[in-house]
């Protein structure tokens, strides 16, 4: 169907959604004077053993927490930032002894690697990249992609890490003639990378050769879309986008996520599913994360909403806890848990 006929996901009423679908597993108390900005869960190697750890990021400190038992966590490392504030954690899959972070004020100015020296386990940080960084994403096979500059002087770079976390290799991808805003790796086609641009195109690269394979212009209904996930299946690309700038409409309500299908050969696309806010839920998309077929979003109302993209509707709503609005939501990279964060630094882990 053409995009204007995009199927709208069912809009169940708020009170029919059961927050009991989410069970609280544990909580991390992180009293800090600065604002909580990100959370992530990753494997960390200590003394030859890999442990599922949680990373919390405030503006001036990043902490690594290891599990004491199934309910309690212990802070084992902290890295401090006095000059440039932390903006986000950049998880790099397949790396077990290094955390990447993006630093800056509103826009990314630096990407740093945080690690521990093997001898005394003391915290170290290494500057990987600086400049006018527009987007960054950790990729499988210990790689990191970043874009710097705008359409006329844009550089898209892949950085590879050695097993010990040291920076090993650099490669450039052919830049498109539009500024790249977000990246997404493609599940099902290992060496393909997607990017979204400021003028609503999706670009496709070959990561191995650096070639720019295709530019697909998508519907202009919603500007500045963010690409969360991409899946390659039966010759088609299925792309999950979110729309932080979308306005509410009579026909589609308040759109949060959209599943788009693209034929990369013909550069044609159609919207197949639009996930809007459940009826009665006010606000719009603030930030979100997608893992497999489950999408989670923090709404401006301070509530977290979760959609099952296979069922096509919202399956759970998590209202603010202790009168504190949610500000962060991430899926764990080590299990199926949901990490929900509040501005004061407290992190709640749900199953």
């Amino acid at each position: 169907r053409p995009t204007e006929q995009t199927e709208t996901a069912d809009l169940p009423a708020c009170d029919s959604l059961n927050p009991g679908n989410l069970q609280l597993v544990s909580e991390l108390k992180n009293p800090s004077s600065s604002c909580s900005v990100d959370v992530s869960a990753m494997w960390w190697e200590r003394a030859g053993t890999k442990e599922p750890c949680i990373i919390t990021a405030c503006e001036d400190v990043v902490s690594l927490w290891k599990p004491l038992n199934s309910l309690q966590w212990e802070k084992v490392h902290t890295w401090h930032f006095t000059e440039v504030p932390v903006l986000q954690i950049v998880p790099v899959p397949d790396v077990y002894n290094l955390i990447c972070v993006a630093l800056g004020s509103l826009e990314i100015r630096e990407i740093r690697a945080l690690l521990c020296s093997s001898g005394d386990e003391s915290e170290k940080q290494v500057l990987l990249k600086s400049g006018d960084i527009k987007a960054v994403l950790g990729l499988t096979k210990r790689r990191l992609v970043s874009s710097t500059g705008n359409f006329c002087n844009q550089q898209i770079q892949i950085m590879s890490f050695a097993e010990d976390g040291s920076s090993k290799d650099e490669q450039l991808l052919m830049p498109p003639d539009e500024t790249v805003l977000t990246f997404a790796e493609v599940q099902g086609t290992q060496e393909a990378l997607l990017g979204t641009t400021t003028v609503n195109s999706i670009v496709i690269w070959n990561l191995k050769t650096g070639q720019l394979l295709k530019k697909v212009h998508i519907d202009d209904s919603y500007q500045a879309s963010v690409c969360h996930r991409a899946y390659s299946e039966m010759g088609l690309l299925f792309v999950v986008l979110s729309y932080p700038c979308a306005k509410e409409s009579q026909a589609f309500g308040s759109p949060v996520f959209q599943l788009l299908v693209i034929n990369p050969k013909t550069a044609r696309s159609v919207g197949v599913l639009l996930c809007s806010l459940p009826q009665g839920e006010a606000g719009r998309f603030l930030e979100g994360d997608v893992k497999d077929h489950i999408a989670a979003a923090v709404l401006t109302s301070g509530t977290i909403a979760i959609w099952d993209l296979l069922l096509g509707h919202c399956t759970a709503l998590l209202p603010p806890v202790s009168d504190q609005s949610w500000s962060l939501v991430k899926w764990s990279g080590t299990d199926s848990h949901l990490l929900a964060g509040q501005k004061d630094g407290n992190i709640f882990i749900y199953r």
Binding site: L213, S232, K265, R268
Partner: peptide
Amino acid sequence: CSTADLGPISLNWFEELSSEAPP
């Protein structure tokens, strides 16, 4: 959703586009 609107589909799209695109 009808895939007819998307045009002809190729299972080998990645290899085909890689052989057509400039190096």
